[in-house]
């Protein structure tokens, strides 16, 4: 059974300047112990997808349609109180910038202990502190007892990200959502954090959704990839086929525009920019940037074409090759 199953998710923001249809029918699933990568340029809807799962959309954002099944329960019907219980306990999240997501006025160790106390009512303060220090050691923080009583600004970026991971894992969640967890870090620190996340996935069996636009990180970390464009999933593939034979022209564009350390190919940029959700073009949303676009692409939205259970592409080029749904 899938741990998480997202089906036909539509999330909109109702802003003063009008409606922003950020997600338009996103579907994907993740199994227990699996690492799923979500890739796509800025503004494609990666973060809104994860914020929708956690229902952290603020008062302007709303899930208009669709279903989010987590361990067989429908999260979209959960009350605020029920969601608070899920967050941090069963599903937790790590963000890109650890300095802005940690409270600058509270000692880092205490921030971990507070999360534990929030979800484990039977713990005493001392037990929570002990557990927090244990977590700090697990994420590789040297002199954990000493660091427990330091403030976020006293730690380096890499150490702050380790604290965030310790908070996220404190209650042994089933699902960890990591949104660009290493983008703000140097490669040498990134290497350590990625190594740490591999260790965690291996030791705890936690499923991970890894959101990143760095394809090197994707190749290194994930089992399966979904590619998002303009609030939709345009390709779903296992990681090896994604790099060796990407199907969607957008996936091909992303790979061809990524400089690689181990090859000297010429970079081919994708022309143009991601459209704003309110100015989404007719037909296939990628058509103004697509080198393969034909007339039908400009007028009619392509259907999903499936190859087996876990391989999908949303593009007219594949319409006749396999059965559509």
């Amino acid at each position: 059974m899938n741990l998480l199953e997202v089906k036909n998710l539509h999330t909109h923001f109702h802003t003063d300047r009008g409606l922003v249809p950020a997600l338009n029918g996103v579907s994907f699933s993740i199994k227990k112990g699996e690492v799923l990568g979500i890739v796509g340029e800025s503004g494609c809807g990666k973060s809104v997808t994860s914020l929708s799962i956690l229902q952290l959309l603020g008062n302007k954002g709303k899930i208009e349609k669709g279903s989010i099944q987590f361990k067989g329960q429908e999260l979209t019907t959960f009350t605020k109180k029920q969601m608070r219980k899920v967050r941090g306990d069963e599903i937790s999240m790590i963000f890109q910038e650890p300095l802005t997501s940690l409270n600058p006025l509270i000692r880092v160790g205490k921030q971990i202990a507070e999360t534990i106390l929030l979800h484990r009512e039977n713990y005493s303060k001392n037990q929570a502190k002990e557990h927090a220090i244990k977590m700090m050691k697990m994420v590789g923080i040297p002199q954990a007892e000493e660091k427990y009583s330091q403030y976020p600004h006293q730690l380096s970026g890499g150490m702050r990200q380790r604290i965030m991971i310790a908070i996220a894992l404190a209650c042994n969640p089933d699902l960890l959502i990591a949104d660009e967890p290493t983008t703000a870090l140097d490669v040498t620190i990134q290497e350590q954090i990625l190594g740490l996340m591999k260790k965690i996935a291996h030791e705890t069996g936690t499923s991970i959704i890894f959101i990143t636009h760095d394809l090197g990180v994707v190749a290194e970390m994930v089992d399966r990839v979904i590619v998002m464009y303009s609030g939709q999933v345009v390709e779903e593939n296992d990681v090896v086929s994604f790099f060796e034979a990407p199907k969607h022209p957008y996936s091909q564009g992303l790979i061809n525009s990524t400089p690689a350390i181990d090859q000297g190919q010429k970079l081919e940029a994708i022309r143009g920019n991601v459209p704003a959700p309110a100015n989404k073009p007719n037909g296939c949303p990628f058509h103004p940037r697509c080198p393969m676009a034909s007339d039908i692409c400009k007028t009619t939205v392509p259907k999903n074409t499936y190859f087996g259970k876990q391989e999908m592409v949303n593009c007219w080029l594949y319409d006749k090759e396999a059965k559509t749904s």
Partner: peptide, 16 residues
């Protein structure tokens, strides 16, 4: 630097 080839993964748990 991660390679963009998923068959050549280089980062191990010992690098944590």
């Amino acid at each position: 630097v991660p390679s963009t080839d998923p068959k050549k993964r280089t980062i191990g748990e010992e690098q944590a």
